[in-house]
Design a protein around this nucleic acid. Structure first.
Length: 943
RNA sequence: GGGCAAUUAGCUCAGUUGGUUAGAGCGUCUCGGUGACAUCGAGAAGGUCAAAGGUUCAAAUCCUUUAUUGCCCACCA
């Protein structure tokens, strides 16, 4: 074992061993839940309960980023914890083909490398390129995931676009079609002219920008003004909407105008609609049903004609005279020009508005009517007890079948679901799941065939569109468990029966609506039950400055880089610590380095123990009832007690998803209690039981740490000579009810030791200088007497220790006045540094030239004898004098300020005066000569 | 416009149903080559818990208002 832990030597090897062992696969696990109330531990059950997480499949668009590393850290923590608890634990890996995103990435790549567009290339060649690309990234992703130490069951690995999942998607489509949930209809969709595809509502992003609001009349005959930012779409207006309450326009409602608008004839009906804001623009809006969601709704309600103005390329559609074929921008210029010429344009106003853009490529979205496939979310479905997908998905959450962590996301989910519209699932891109729909070629009346397999015969042509990538991701939980093959005649079999519903979905809150909501709906439809019981939503990992990491900013951290630099354990720990569910957290190399240091500390703790302790061959089984037969020292009892409490706390925190807190408690115990105190004690306190205790605590500590930092714990575990993997060891259990008195007593000894160290440091006693101490211990006399060795040896550098009974019933003030030192010398009163503001009683130092007095509490006082070094003391005093002089100057200034005296509350002024007095007294104390008094004079004065 | 969150030490954050003296890590300062560890050890300094009011024996914690910041949703033709 090297002095410092080098992760690179061990990590890959350990991972290979784990993978080879087969224990990532729940089928191979020795299971059985340990019942905490039964001390004997294992309750073996053949059918142990399962614990399942389906890994959120990363997009194969790029290698993993730090966010994925965080997902892996949290999920592997939960998985390893439950595996050790004895659950039949499954963590199922996979990747997402991310249809539109992947195609975009590949298209961009090809354009950059070869200057070709997808149309130049053709569908077949493009798909070939896509596959080439995705094989590469997929391999990278899987490599990275292993590097993180993820204990995923690779034998069940899935891909949203592999054969099994293709089958599932087709089956789902067919089932939904047959249930009438999927339909084809013409509706306004978000159209990206660059991707040449529809987008779902939540795939649209908004960008604020300046736009010009044009106020104009259609022509001279039209009675009033309307306002628009997009004059070119006005060619498709079929109505003008006003607010019902608007007195200005009331009289026009219901009238129909046939007019000529810039060379195109329009038939406009004046309608009333509540949505119209009387105060915005002209208070009247031209209704363009084909290019606005709201207008589309109005058109449906008022039975208006729908005129498509802009086509799929973003150009003006046919049938609009000279405008046809022009781009929207060109048409806008033409129309504005004509309006100006005809004096119809009343004014132009600059406003800021939100432009909708494609979340993938940033192109401006064109809303336009198109015939697409939809999932009806409001349609009542027989097999869902005559409820709609939406209603059912809301119900299961409201009933508490699915719980969100943190809870506040439940509200966000419900708000989203309640406002959900039909989901457009067809996309006009090439890479993605094909729609299992065929049309008969020859017939004019299109015959349609919907089925998992292609229909027989040559005269069928398949729907050219592909499915929204979320359609296949929405099925991820059950498609990975073998649906539809594992779902026969309404009954779950195989993996689906064993693992569905899963226990946990863990993902970033950003895709709560995009993904989580869809999984719930689709699972309810396909399997008739919820897909998961809990949804843990984690925050975003931000950079050092709280900014989102992104490629363009170059502030991203590559998980592989930092794993190589600090080790996977340190990376995992920095993901887990200091982050709480649903909250964003910051990441920096400094933070990771800190945890690297901790990992190294753990390494050295075990190095010390394994080097100094002979391996005990018999199984170490310590518990508190058996303790009675051991001869345990105070420190032993203290650490065992603390460790027992720790087991309880950590288990509890993990159950409550307080991962950071659990880790913090572990760190605190490991470093501050175990290493800094108990190990130090063990260096001189040698009893038979010490070795057993050291091994017992180390081994169980490794178990507790294992879900957080699997590599180093497994490494140490095997270095200790254990044959079985730590990964499948049983989680330690908390033994109830222990005596807390030993703990308190040890804490008291600790306090004494700290007080002595503190006094040494404060008084600049040379570290090597051995001193004598007298402890007046009051009612703790016996305790102190028994633990003299601890006090002497724990970095107090005391060579001689005397314990005295010393009854202390009087107040500090009285003690100060009446105090007789054990050396029968009058101590010179002086103030400690703390003495300035308030008389801090604890640790108040009293000293004369030879002795330091330390007050620990009402019962314990310590005298350090022979502690002073004259020269050092003088330096310290000089420094203090300068400090005091500055303070006094400032205080005098403050007190001579009339404003302060007037305005400040009386008690504050008094306090400041008191402070000044104290300073002056202390200064005189330290340096009587500066006031022109001889020492003798000063002594008289101070009386 | 609607909603959600955050505001605690120089920085990053804990603080679980209200309860001793508000904690940790990093950073800063002082000291220390001691046989596990300098990726270390011993110690110190540093806080009006964003502001104001209220409830309570008791508030960082609960309520109200305000301010600042971040995010989400909707959206203006």
């Amino acid at each position: 074992m090297d002095k410092t832990y080098n992760p690179q030597i061990y990590e890959d090897e350990i991972y290979q061993k784990w993978e080879k062992s087969g224990f990532f696969n729940p089928d191979n696990l020795p299971c059985g839940i340990r019942n905490a109330t039964i001390q004997q531990g294992l309750l073996c059950e053949k059918n142990a309960p399962t614990y399942t997480i389906i890994f959120p499949p990363p997009n194969i668009t790029a290698k993993l980023h730090i966010g994925h590393a965080s997902v892996i850290s949290i999920e592997d923590l939960m998985i390893r914890y439950h595996r050790m608890k004895g659950y039949r634990t499954l963590w199922l890996p996979g990747t997402d083909h991310a249809a539109i995103a992947t195609q975009n990435v590949v298209e961009k790549k090809i354009f950059k490398e070869q200057g070709l567009t997808r149309h130049d290339l053709g569908k077949e060649k493009l798909l070939k390129e896509v596959w080439k690309f995705l094989k590469q990234t997929q391999a990278t992703i899987l490599h990275q995931t292993r590097k993180m130490g993820a204990s995923l069951d690779w034998s069940r690995e899935a891909f949203t676009f592999d054969d099994q999942r293709k089958k599932a998607v087709s089956q789902m489509f067919v089932d939904m079609y047959e249930a009438g949930v999927i339909y084809k209809g013409e509706r306004i969709v978000n159209w990206c002219p660059r991707c040449h595809s529809t987008l779902a509502d939540d795939e649209v992003e908004y960008k604020e920008q300046k736009a010009i609001l044009y106020f104009f009349k259609y022509n001279k005959d039209f009675p009033f003004t309307i306002a628009t930012t997009r004059p070119e779409t006005k060619l498709g207006d079929t109505a003008v909407a006003v607010n019902l309450k608007d007195e200005r326009y009331k009289k026009y409602i219901g009238k129909i105008y046939e007019i000529d608008f810039c060379g195109v004839s329009l038939k406009l009906k004046i309608i009333a609609d509540r949505e119209v804001d009387m105060n915005f623009g002209a208070g009247a809006l031209g209704v363009t049903p084909a290019h606005s969601m709201i207008d589309w709704k109005m058109a449906e309600e008022n039975d208006l004609e729908i005129k498509k103005v802009i086509n799929e390329d973003g150009n003006i559609h046919q049938g609009f005279e000279k405008y046809s074929g022009k781009t929207a921008q060109e048409a806008r210029k033409m129309i504005v020009k004509i309006l100006k010429e005809q004096n119809l344009l009343e004014k132009e106003e600059e406003i800021s508005n939100n432009l909708s853009i494609c979340y993938r490529c940033g192109t401006v979205i064109e809303p336009l009517p198109s015939k697409q496939w939809f999932v009806a979310v409001d349609k009542k479905i027989k097999k869902l007890e005559n409820k709609s997908l939406k209603e059912k998905a809301i119900e299961v959450v409201k009933k508490g079948e699915i719980k969100f962590i943190p809870e506040r996301f439940e509200k966000r989910y419900l708000d989203w679901m309640e406002n959900l519209h039909d989901w457009c699932i067809s996309r006009q891109i090439w890479f993605g799941h094909e729609i299992p729909v065929w049309y008969k070629k020859t017939q004019k009346q299109k015959e349609i065939y919907v089925g998992v397999e292609a229909p027989e015969g040559d005269n069928w042509i398949q729907d050219p569109d592909t499915l929204d990538t979320w359609f296949s991701s929405g099925m991820w939980i059950f498609s990975t468990l073998g649906w539809p093959d594992t779902f026969q005649n309404g009954k779950k079999i195989g993996d689906l029966a064993r693992f569905h519903p899963t226990q946990m979905l863990e993902t970033c809150y950003e895709i709560l609506t995009l993904w989580v909501s869809r999984m719930i709906m689709m699972s309810l439809f396909a399997v008739g039950e919820i897909p998961f019981e809990k949804v843990y939503l984690q925050g975003t990992i931000l950079d050092k400055n709280g900014k989102k990491m992104s490629k363009s900013k170059g502030n991203g951290i590559d998980p592989i880089d930092i794993i190589e630099k600090f080790g996977a354990d340190a990376v995992r720990l920095s993901m887990l610590m200091g982050s709480t569910p649903g909250n964003d957290s910051r990441m920096s190399e400094e933070k990771i380095a800190g945890y690297r240091n901790f990992v190294n500390k753990l390494w050295n703790i075990s190095r010390y123990i394994t080097h100094n302790v002979e391996r005990i061959t018999h199984n170490v089984k310590l518990n508190f009832e058996q303790n009675l037969s051991y001869k345990l020292t105070l420190a032993d009892k203290w650490i065992l007690n603390k460790f027992n409490v720790l087991i309880g706390d950590v288990t509890n925190d993990l159950e409550k998803y307080n991962f950071s807190q659990a880790g913090e408690k572990l760190r605190e115990f490991t470093w501050n209690d175990f290493a800094d105190w108990y190990l130090e004690v063990s260096k001189f306190e040698k009893n038979k039981e010490k070795n057993e205790i050291l091994i017992y605590i180390l081994e169980n500590l490794l178990k507790l740490w294992h879900p957080f930092i699997p590599f180093i714990t497994e490494t140490i575990w095997s270095e200790m000579g254990n044959k079985q993997f730590l990964m499948i060891e049983k989680w330690p259990f908390y033994a109830k009810a222990t005596e807390s008195k030993p703990s308190y007593n040890f804490e008291l000894i600790k306090e004494i030791i700290i007080a002595i160290r503190n006094a040494r440091s404060e008084n600049k006693i040379e570290p090597n200088k051995k001193i004598k101490a007298i402890i007046c211990a009051g009612k703790y006399f016996d305790l102190v007497e028994e633990n003299k060795e601890l006090i002497k040896n724990l970095k107090t550098n005391i060579n001689e220790l005397e314990t005295q009974k010393h009854k202390n019933t009087k107040t500090q003030k009285q003690k100060n006045q009446e105090f007789k030192s054990p050396l029968d010398k009058e101590p010179v009163p002086s103030l400690s540094r703390e003495g300035l503001g308030d008389f801090k009683q604890e640790n108040q130092l009293k000293h004369d030239n030879k002795m330091i007095r330390v007050v620990v509490d009402d019962d314990i006082e310590i005298y350090l004898i022979g502690a002073k070094d004259e020269e050092k003391e003088q330096m310290r005093i000089n420094k203090r004098i300068i400090e005091l002089e500055k303070l006094i100057l400032n205080l005098e200034k403050k007190l001579s300020n009339k404003e302060f005296i007037k305005k400040a509350p009386a008690n504050i002024v008094e306090k400041e005066k008191e402070k000044l007095k104290l300073c002056q007294v202390e200064l005189k104390n330290l340096n009587p000569s500066s006031f022109g008094f001889s020492e003798n004079n000063f002594k008289k004065m101070s009386k």
